[in-house]
Amino acid sequence: MSTDADRGDRDGRDLAAELASAAAGQVGIPVDAICVGCGRTRVKRARLEEIDQHPQVDPTSLEATDCTSFKHVCYRCGGATWWNPIAVLTGLLERERGE
């Protein structure tokens, strides 16, 4: 299981602020992902089905390697591009759930 609970941030980035941004999306689990177009890494939300997971799976048990690429907006590229998950942000997910 990937976890971000102890780090708080990654490479000087504020993951919670990125997740709160409209650019992250509104539906899905938080993942840290890299845009295949420009190489930018950002927190995005992805529905379980988008990352090729059963909708009933416990997302806290997922590893980034379990997840497939998904399409999401990249503002730097100027449109929808493919993003590769590099971490499932379980700490942010648990925080949202109040755990």
Rank of each mutant, 00 (worst) to 15 (best):
residue 59 P to F: 01
residue 41 T to Q: 13
residue 92 L to G: 09
residue 62 L to G: 03
residue 38 C to T: 10
residue 91 G to Y: 00
residue 20 A to N: 11
residue 90 T to M: 07
residue 51 I to P: 02
residue 73 V to H: 11
residue 67 C to S: 08
residue 5 A to T: 09
residue 44 K to M: 10
residue 56 Q to S: 14
residue 22 A to G: 03
residue 33 A to T: 02
residue 62 L to S: 00
residue 37 G to N: 13
residue 99 E to T: 08
residue 47 R to G: 15
residue 1 M to E: 10
residue 4 D to E: 12
residue 11 D to A: 08
residue 24 A to E: 01
residue 58 D to H: 07
residue 74 C to A: 08
residue 45 R to N: 06
residue 40 R to W: 04
residue 19 L to I: 03
residue 20 A to C: 04
residue 40 R to T: 10
residue 53 Q to Y: 11
residue 42 R to P: 03
residue 27 V to R: 04
residue 78 G to M: 13
residue 27 V to H: 15
residue 66 D to I: 04
residue 57 V to Y: 07
residue 29 I to H: 00
residue 59 P to Y: 05
residue 44 K to W: 06
residue 68 T to G: 15
residue 92 L to H: 00
residue 41 T to V: 10
residue 61 S to N: 11
residue 12 G to F: 13
residue 60 T to F: 08
residue 12 G to C: 00
residue 94 E to N: 11
residue 35 C to W: 03
residue 67 C to E: 07
residue 65 T to W: 02
residue 13 R to K: 11
residue 11 D to M: 02
residue 88 V to A: 04
residue 86 I to L: 09
residue 79 G to T: 07
residue 55 P to W: 15
residue 62 L to P: 04
residue 80 A to C: 12
residue 48 L to I: 05
residue 24 A to L: 01
residue 76 R to L: 11
residue 12 G to D: 06
residue 6 D to A: 14
residue 57 V to F: 09
residue 13 R to P: 09
residue 20 A to R: 08
residue 23 A to G: 05
residue 86 I to M: 10
residue 49 E to D: 08
residue 8 G to M: 05
residue 98 G to P: 12
residue 79 G to C: 09
residue 26 Q to S: 13
